[in-house]
Design a protein around this nucleic acid. Structure first.
Lengths: 362, 362
DNA sequence: GAAGTGATCGTAAACGTTTACGGTGATGAG
DNA sequence: CTCATCACCGTAAACGTTTACGATCACTTC
């Protein structure tokens, strides 16, 4: 019962009991010959403890392998040293990349992360996720909300702890911080690249307009065109899938109206598009330049290797964390969005000198 | 000091205070006119409470928005309703897919998951991850250990709660359950498909031998060949990267010894390989059949669409969870590995009727 | 009508911390 | 010598639950 709490090794008689009761602050105190109050003080770097005692307690902690019981701490301080992440369930490149980076940064900052994914009817599931996280006692929450429905669910939700949202192009509200990569800039970069190559007829294979990413990337394309005094080219809105891109690519070749250049909203979209072209004798990049977005693994080994835009998820995660812990500590952090970079490969090339009326087909 | 606990905003008079102190079991008891003991009983579906009271308490809980304080529960029961996941940091397809599926299943079973990723020198980082998870109070831990170094770190680690490892082809030990998809079968499927197509010279572009997946997939290839009485073909071991695959593909065409068929250890590997071939006039599948492994998004829109093998991460996660909660509750669950499936597309085709001595080149 | 029997409920203690406060002894000032 | 001061340390209470146990009350049953 109230035994000394030997962590492991030989205790009374029996040989070696592997998994013993975890040592508590009291066990440490007993061994070190002080009171538990003193131990608590050294644990929290509080003053009022002599260097000698502190040293001794630290040693004992080391020796018997004491580790703080987080539940007890959380109970009394009503705040835990972990942060919550809610994400949409999608396995799409952006969200997953952000998630991984977030966990990494958090761990390095000494926070554990517990992640919950919200499912399709977001109205309820988001609030539920927030509640669960609150129950667990997280100090703050980051929600990765690439879909606009999800973002509005967050806006409408209530939560006692700071909530930050990573959502490209969504606006902040009093109680929800927003942060994201500057994807519109990425889209401009891509489009401008095409413009610089001499193309004037630049189409866009957009992602889903249910996604911020889809909206913002389209906006960037439009803006770049407008700034260059070029007409808006063909634009179709899809669902990010290679399949959809393939099919609209097919329609393009069948209609005989192949643009000089196409900015695809994602690498997967570009993939489907390129297949449609290649299978029908339309050459990339000779007949049509294509640039993607994401720089997914392997995009440098597509046929042809894809010109695309890369986001820096690590920087994004770092910045988001900074903002969140800032909010948690009541401090304001100024956030400058991180910038994506264009990576030029082989799927885009200079326009034929004289403007070929249209692309060759068949 | 000991005020009612209004967090902020107008406290004394003010209209509506958004974020109040969370109601406790005592608040519920007071409103319902019972003792906290009774509330605890209905919370835990314990007997000894009349239907009427239970109903009433439930109603009050609903009304005032009471939610259990998990820290308190964890403190007294020394067990929380959450499970820990440790993964390697890699963003590779398998681990990430498994991770997402795991979170999903856990949530549906009412567990929160907190994930920690372990980093390169696994010896320490794995133990640290396990400890942190233990601190948090998880009831069990699943570690996704695709790399053999990581797996041995797990074997050597100590942990008070049940640990289960997802590692293809790793063996179980007394204190570490192991579970995985039957990837060797997947590799056999892929190879057998090539054999059925009439190929006799079947090479393998293996993954890293530091990974269980790499080892097991190679083993499957060897076994299928042996069973068919076919000689071992060419085999190179790489690092999963398209780049490496591309370069060894180049060496193959330069050496002029292109096998009839190649089983690539992953879709990304296949991608690099195919690019090397296609850029040098070696046609896939006419000159050489290629099959991959993973069925990553977009592999159905490669050029050509890739024949590959797909794993069922959901089934894997489901089964793993079953095993883990079984272990947590001291119950034994028999685990039959889930099986991957072959998905045939366009990158593989029947061998030329008479055995062409070698592949055409240039 | 007394005692036994269930069903229903209340109470105390414990879980491992943190926090606020009180106490000790040594030291210096007067 | 006395008293205040300071550095250091111990103690009690609290956080919100669960668990074990004891109490109450209405019925049976004889």
């Amino acid at each position: 019962m109230a035994d000394a709490g030997v962590p492991h090794g030989t205790n009374g008689r029996g040989p070696d009991v592997a998994l013993r009761r975890k040592p508590t602050i009291n066990d440490v105190a007993k061994v070190a010959g002080v009171s538990f109050g003193t131990v608590s003080r050294v644990l929290n770097d509080a003053p009022d403890v002599s260097a000698a005692t502190r040293q001794r307690v630290l040693q004992v902690i080391q020796d018997i392998g004491y580790r703080r019981n987080r539940a007890a701490t959380a109970l009394v301080t009503s705040r835990s040293t972990s942060i919550g992440i809610v994400t949409d369930g999608s396995p799409r490149f952006g969200p997953v990349g952000t998630l991984m980076a977030l966990e990494n940064i958090a761990r390095k900052k000494g926070y554990a992360t517990t992640v919950i994914s919200a499912e399709k009817p977001y109205a309820d599931s988001v609030q539920a996720a927030l509640d669960t996280l609150d129950d667990i006692g997280v100090g703050g929450i980051i929600v990765i909300a690439p879909v606009v429905d999800m973002a509005s669910a967050v806006w409408n939700a209530t939560c006692r702890v700071p909530v930050e949202m990573i959502a490209a192009g969504a606006s902040s509200t009093p109680n929800v911080f927003t942060y994201s990569e500057n994807q519109e800039l990425g889209a401009r970069l891509a489009t401008q690249h095409l413009i610089d190559l001499g193309h004037t007829d630049i189409a866009h294979l957009a992602g889903s307009m249910d996604w911020f990413d889809g909206r913002v990337r389209k906006r960037g394309w439009e803006a770049a065109l407008r700034d260059a005094g070029l007409p808006q080219g063909f634009c179709a809105e899809g669902d990010w899938s290679p399949r959809w891109a393939y099919e609209t690519g097919l329609q393009l070749v069948q209609g005989g109206k192949i643009p000089q250049a196409i900015f695809a909203a994602s690498d997967h979209t570009a993939l489907g598009l390129i297949r449609a072209f290649t299978e029908n004798g339309v050459r990339v990049p000779e007949d049509v330049s294509v640039v993607g977005f994401d720089d997914i693994e392997g995009s440098d080994y597509f046929l042809p290797p894809l010109t695309t835009v890369r986001q820096d998820f690590t920087a994004l995660a770092l910045m988001s964390m900074e903002v969140l812990v800032g909010a948690m500590e009541g401090r304001e952090v100024d956030r400058t969005p991180t910038a994506p970079t264009l990576v030029v490969r082989n799927s885009s090339m200079r326009a034929a000198s004289t403007r070929a009326t249209s692309a060759k087909r068949r």
